[in-house]
Amino acid sequence: MITACAVDDLPPGESVRVDGKPAIAVFNADGEFYAIDDTCSHQDASLSEGWLEGCFVECPLHAALFDLRTGMPTCLPAKKAVRTYPVVVRDGVIYVDTGGREAVA
């Protein structure tokens, strides 16, 4: 598990990027926390810089829309899903379970 940030540092509607291989984007969607690969599957763009609406993030480059719960794109130009990661909140801190993948908080 890697540390993303404190819950207080990620208000609803916001995101944070956790650098690593791969980089991970963590979102606060109305009090629910989600983590996905930060790089859009269509082209190299940071999803943490996208627009959050409910449980969906819009890529800032070509407007592909991804479901934060599944990682699946819901419209073109993206056709491939991004990986999702389990999120754990403990003692006011958000952790991402990378399944043993290397990441740097």
Score class of each variant (00 low, 15 high):
residue 7 V to H: 02
residue 37 D to N: 15
residue 67 D to I: 04
residue 14 E to T: 15
residue 49 E to Y: 09
residue 18 V to M: 14
residue 24 I to W: 06
residue 94 I to Q: 06
residue 58 E to W: 01
residue 15 S to L: 00
residue 63 A to D: 10
residue 56 F to T: 12
residue 1 M to W: 13
residue 2 I to S: 09
residue 88 V to C: 12
residue 2 I to Q: 05
residue 43 Q to P: 01
residue 71 G to T: 06
residue 78 A to T: 03
residue 81 A to V: 08
residue 9 D to N: 14
residue 30 D to P: 04
residue 66 F to S: 10
residue 69 R to D: 02
residue 31 G to N: 01
residue 83 R to D: 08
residue 27 F to C: 05
residue 34 Y to G: 09
residue 64 A to V: 07
residue 92 G to M: 03
residue 50 G to A: 03
residue 24 I to Q: 07
residue 70 T to L: 04
residue 54 G to A: 02
residue 65 L to K: 14
residue 31 G to P: 03
residue 103 A to N: 08
residue 29 A to N: 10
residue 33 F to S: 01
residue 67 D to C: 08
residue 30 D to L: 01
residue 93 V to Y: 02
residue 58 E to T: 15
residue 87 V to P: 02
residue 68 L to V: 06
residue 45 A to W: 00
residue 11 P to M: 08
residue 56 F to H: 14
residue 61 L to E: 06
residue 13 G to F: 06
residue 50 G to I: 00
residue 84 T to A: 04
residue 77 P to V: 12
residue 13 G to T: 06
residue 95 Y to I: 09
residue 8 D to H: 05
residue 96 V to L: 12
residue 79 K to Y: 09
residue 98 T to K: 11
residue 73 P to N: 06
residue 86 P to T: 07
residue 33 F to G: 11
residue 14 E to W: 05
residue 105 A to S: 14
residue 91 D to Y: 09
residue 37 D to C: 10
residue 32 E to Y: 08
residue 77 P to C: 10
residue 27 F to D: 01
residue 51 W to L: 15
residue 22 P to N: 09
residue 54 G to D: 08
residue 83 R to W: 08
residue 53 E to T: 04
residue 70 T to M: 09
residue 83 R to Y: 02
residue 50 G to F: 05
